[in-house]
Computed example of a mutant assay.
Amino acid sequence: MGGAMALTLAALVYPGMLGLNQVTSQSTRIIANTQWGPLTEGDRDFVVKVRAAGLWEYPVGQLGLQKGTTKGVVTASKHLIDGHAALDASCRKIAPMLNITLPNVASPQQEGFLQTLKSDQGRQFDVDFANILRMTHGSIFNTIAKIRSTTKNSLVRALADQTNDTVLDHITVMERTGLIDFDQTLFQQTTPPKLPQADLTPPPPPAGQPEVILTPPPNATSTPLDLNGITDSGDSKDRGNAPGPAPDPTAG
């Protein structure tokens, strides 16, 4: 698999599953004070890009059910659909609570991954499917942990918990396909070239465009966030009736 895989990964460049590989000082800037805790630029970007991840990985899962030639790839495809449908529902739950506008399409880079897999056939599809998705999930794993450990917003924290579990599951099922070229995949994961920010950023939806919904499978095992136990930032038990977000005009 070495030669073809190396060419494919080189062409795809760096896998920013959630597009959070570029960290700036602005990520800690508070853009809204909410009853669930302050919302920073990094928090907002995390919610947006979890949503964007599903917008390309969910259809990749659908492709895998149609084109996958091994049991491992088909199983991994089911996990993609199941996990991202639940994450999508969670994003759509908390986004309006935090005054965050969600995209309806993935980033240009992520759409490039999808188009590559649409053009693949047979074993090449299986190999690229497993390696691209192992690479993208691996590249974001540490970033999820950073969001989880630093956010002061309880809704974002809960989403980070769910995302962490989902990403670990997806890493595991990709590895179980037996198709991973670890040397090449980890090299691409840890030595990212610089890409224009526009390639990593999902565009906002046009005004009035209906929200895209990722439908859970009939036998779904993953579930969206239960917000009943998330009433405030956790700093005070008396903030349940506190006002909602005081948004920055640029939020979303």
Rank of each mutant, 00 (worst) to 15 (best):
N142C: 02
R123F: 11
K93Y: 00
S119L: 13
I100F: 06
F113S: 04
V73L: 05
A106Q: 03
Y58S: 07
K78P: 03
L133E: 02
R92P: 02
L168G: 04
G61Y: 00
K118N: 06
K152Y: 05
T143V: 14
Q162D: 04
A160M: 08
P59Q: 03
S149N: 15
R134I: 02
S154D: 06
V127R: 07
F129N: 04
P108L: 14
K93F: 06
T163Y: 10
A86F: 00
L87S: 00
Y58R: 01
I144A: 05
Q121E: 15
N164Y: 15
H170L: 15
L114D: 00
H170N: 05
V74M: 01
F113C: 09
D169C: 12
N131S: 11
C91R: 08
A160Y: 02
N142F: 12
K146Q: 13
K152F: 10
Q121I: 12
A76F: 08
Q124F: 07
L159V: 10
L63H: 10
D126Y: 04
H170Q: 15
T70V: 04
T163K: 07
P103H: 14
A85E: 08
S154L: 06
Q109E: 10
Q124R: 13
D161Q: 13
A76N: 00
K118Q: 15
A95E: 05
L80H: 04
A158K: 00
V73C: 01
I171Q: 03
A130F: 03
D161G: 09
A76L: 01
G64F: 05
Q162R: 13
R134A: 07
N99D: 15
T150Q: 14
L87T: 04
Q124K: 11
L87G: 06
G112R: 08
E111D: 11
S90N: 10
C91A: 12
L168S: 12
Q121R: 14
A130V: 08
V105Y: 09
L114V: 06
L155V: 09
F125G: 01
G122L: 02
P96D: 14
V60T: 07
R157S: 10
D169G: 01
R92S: 03
Q162P: 01
D126L: 07
T172M: 12
F125M: 01
